[in-house]
Amino acid sequence: MDVKISKELSELRPGAALMVLSYEAEVKESSAELLALLDKTIDNIHSRYTMTDLAELIHIKDTRTAYRNLGKSPTAYRNAAEAMLRRIVKGNGLYHINNVVEINNLISITTGYSVGSYDTDCLSGTVEWKRAPDGESYLGIGKDILNIEHLPTLYDEKGAFGNPTSDSRRAMISPGIHRISSVVYSFSGNHELDLIASQYQELLIAHCRAKEIDVKIIS
């Protein structure tokens, strides 16, 4: 997936960066081993953090600041990483979806970065990460119409399809063998993304039979 960051987004939020992993994977129900790893991580976070602690995590703070810079309320439209961490601290855990989504969530809750995965066969042309214009919306996964105006959103030639709060249904992944692009959304620069890429690739290979993995960091 060829991705660029708009000049407006970079100017409004210096430090905006993306890590994009493109690969082929078998999307299916998560193995007992992967679910055990996820549940162990959830238990550790639940015992370790309070709600007050979450607000002080650097990547959560940086994302909240970015949303305010872009003109979006970070509490009315929480980024996915913060929303999941809040569920965990409250003792509500996370839903089990499939192996690719479980790995997304594992990376997200351990780093504080929101992550989205997209079926690249559903996308077309160059992708741009930019501030969504006034009045913009789309059909969200598990939601009805989602107001995405002013959110930092991914666009291809067909329109908007993903952002750090909630993705659209258009490029959602389904069971089977697919070409996928997973995007780590950062507002804290790119200095940690290489290490996360290594961890991410190990999980994808171990639990999704991922191959032909390509990693790009854009800032």
Rank of each mutant, 00 (worst) to 15 (best):
L195F: 11
Y138L: 09
L18I: 15
I60N: 02
A81Q: 06
S31H: 01
P133H: 03
T110I: 02
D214K: 10
Y138R: 01
I180C: 00
S186T: 05
R209D: 00
A83G: 10
M84P: 04
E136I: 03
K211W: 05
I196S: 05
N104H: 04
A83F: 00
A76R: 04
N147D: 15
A55I: 12
R209Q: 06
D156W: 15
A17D: 13
D156Y: 15
R169Y: 02
N147F: 01
S22Y: 07
K211P: 03
T41C: 10
G125A: 15
W129C: 14
T126Y: 15
N190W: 11
E82R: 11
S181R: 01
A210Q: 00
S73I: 08
L38Q: 09
L151D: 08
D43V: 05
K158L: 15
S10N: 10
R169H: 12
S30P: 04
S174F: 03
H59S: 12
M1L: 13
P175N: 05
A132G: 11
I148A: 08
A80M: 12
S124A: 15
E82V: 12
L85M: 07
S137A: 13
I60V: 14
M51V: 12
L57H: 13
P164N: 15
N105S: 01
P74I: 03
R48S: 13
G162E: 14
L106G: 05
E212A: 04
I177N: 07
N163L: 07
N99T: 05
S166I: 10
Y200D: 05
R13P: 09
S181N: 03
A81F: 11
Y95M: 09
R86K: 10
Y95I: 13
L35E: 09
L12G: 09
T165Q: 02
S174C: 04
S168W: 02
N105T: 07
L204A: 06
